[in-house]
Simulated assay, not measured.
Amino acid sequence: MFVFESAMATLRKYADFQGRASRHEFWCFFAFVILANAVAGLVGMLFGMGPMLSGLVGLFLVIPQIAVAVRRLHDVGKSGRELVVPCVILAVMPVAFAFRGILPQIVALGLLGVGLLAFANLLTLFLKKGTNVPNRYGKAPAAFSFAR
């Protein structure tokens, strides 16, 4: 149940790109997004809606995912601009693989390699422990506490 409480706290900051997010907040929200998409996909299959419901859930959650990722990067002292290259590569990838021929496929595979490196860099930043002291993006995120 803690993942859902954490995800709801993150959803309250739907499009807040300011401040910092702890590793715990980021990964709990990441788990919530995966669970929400899986449940939406299952419900969509049961009611004959196909992938439409899962797509709507994914579309609804894309802004909070980007916002929490930017805040997570802020926690390790990096700018949210670190997300630009992987997102552009992810958007261009289907177009790159649509071209036929040996040269376009080599270029597409090179783009795939650069994309994998960019995502590996992001993963290391997301796994990195944030600083306990204030940085230029704000004070250190407080641990989640749902005790009242």
Rank of each mutant, 00 (worst) to 15 (best):
G55Y: 03
I34D: 10
P51V: 04
Q65R: 14
N37D: 00
R72Y: 02
A36T: 10
H24F: 12
L59R: 02
L35D: 06
R71E: 05
L56S: 07
I34R: 00
N37H: 04
M45C: 09
F29N: 09
W27H: 13
A31G: 14
F26K: 12
M45A: 11
I63A: 15
L53Q: 04
H24N: 10
F47V: 11
F26H: 13
V43G: 03
I34L: 15
L42H: 15
V39E: 02
A36S: 12
D75K: 14
I34M: 12
F60G: 14
F26Q: 15
S54K: 04
H74M: 13
G48V: 03
M45V: 00
F26G: 11
I66D: 10
G48W: 01
L56M: 13
V39G: 00
V70T: 11
F30Q: 12
A31Y: 10
G44F: 04
R71I: 13
I34E: 13
L53C: 00
I66A: 12
R71Y: 00
M49T: 11
S54Q: 09
L73K: 02
A38Y: 12
E25G: 07
P51I: 05
L46S: 00
A36R: 13
L53S: 01
I66H: 09
I66Q: 09
S54W: 03
H74L: 14
I63E: 11
D75H: 12
A67V: 05
L73I: 11
L46T: 04
G50W: 08
F26L: 12
M45I: 00
L35W: 01
A69R: 11
G50S: 04
H74R: 11
M52D: 04
G41V: 14
A69Y: 06
F60C: 13
L56V: 14
G50M: 02
S22Q: 07
A38T: 13
V57T: 07
Q65C: 15
W27P: 12
F32C: 03
M45Y: 14
S22P: 09
C28G: 05
L46I: 02
A67C: 04
R72F: 06
N37C: 02
P51S: 12
R23W: 04
P64V: 05
G44S: 02
V43W: 08
V70W: 09
L42N: 06
A67D: 06
I34C: 13
G48A: 08
G58M: 05
R72W: 05
A40Y: 00
G58I: 03
I63D: 11
C28E: 08
P64I: 00
F32E: 04
L73D: 07
V76F: 08
P51Y: 03
F60L: 15
F32T: 03
L61D: 04
P51F: 01
M52A: 05
Q65P: 00
A69P: 11
I34H: 01
L59C: 06
L46M: 03
R71H: 02
G77V: 08
V43Y: 08
R71L: 07
A40S: 10
F47L: 15
F32M: 03
I66R: 10
V68A: 02
A40D: 06
G55K: 08
A38F: 10
S54M: 10
A69W: 02
D75F: 12
G77H: 07
M52E: 03
V76R: 01
G77I: 08
S54D: 01
S22A: 08
A67Y: 09
F29A: 08
A31C: 12
V39R: 05
V43N: 03
V57D: 07
L46Y: 00
L53M: 01
V33N: 12
V68M: 01
G48H: 06
